[in-house]
Design a protein around this nucleic acid. Structure first.
Length: 202
DNA sequence: AATCGGATCGTCT
DNA sequence: GACGATCCGATTG
């Protein structure tokens, strides 16, 4: 099988919302010692900067923990939360924005599934990767991959795939309390690996 | 089927 | 010192 080329950096040099929609259907590859772990992106959320987006980690300006969101496009922003889980974001913003990133919330397993099951401590099926914390465990994503370049064929990168056939739907974002009315969550219609949270509960 | 709370810790107030 | 861009198992209807 021919090794595909990573998505070029220009793809990420655009408005965060557009990149969020367009990245759906692309394929994420994690190279580990045991072998490759591969999945198709089916659910994302967009996060921007400052006054435009109070739910974003970047809303309070650049700090040591969120500096990746202000950094170069096409890099990973990996964030640790709830004491146990990592979140994988892809830095993407147009020139006039100071910060922006796309949170990967769900992927559909393609290859290396046995590694995913092991990383998820025996869980399998839907529960492998249908949520941001879950897919980070399945793909062995941790803080070491913060600021990792996703346009190079190294430990973690994103490649193009065949054109998606599903419709892209949008909704409010999950697990936040500010700016809940912004419909910046995007997912592929009908895909089993889209998380099914009841969200924005009061 | 839907809701509730515990686990667990880096980061900011 | 409080609180998450969460997950999961237990409990209740």
């Amino acid at each position: 099988m021919k090794e595909p080329t990573p998505v070029k950096r220009e793809f990420y040099n655009r408005d965060t919302i557009k990149v969020a929609k367009d990245i759906l259907g692309k394929v994420i590859v994690r190279k580990t010692k045991q072998g490759n772990i591969v999945g198709r992106i089916v659910e994302v959320e967009a996060y921007k900067f400052g006054e435009h987006d109070k739910a974003s980690h970047a809303s309070k300006g650049c700090t040591s923990s969120n500096q990746a969101m202000f950094g170069e496009n096409g890099f990973a922003y990996v964030y640790f939360t709830y004491g146990m889980y990592f979140m994988l974001n892809v830095v993407a913003k147009k020139k006039t924005d100071h910060a922006g990133a796309v949170l990967i919330r769900g992927v559909e397993p393609i290859d290396g599934i046995k590694h995913m099951v092991k990383n998820r401590k025996g869980k399998d099926g839907i529960n492998l990767t249908n949520g941001p914390g879950k897919l980070s465990q399945a793909l062995q994503i941790n803080k070491k991959l913060n600021n990792h370049d996703l346009t190079k064929k190294e430990k973690l990168f994103i490649v193009d795939s065949e054109k998606r056939t599903e419709k892209v739907l949008s909704s409010g974002r999950i697990g936040i309390s500010m700016d809940v009315e912004k419909e910046w969550r995007f997912y592929l219609d009908g895909n089993a690996y889209v998380s099914k949270y009841k969200f924005n509960k009061k």
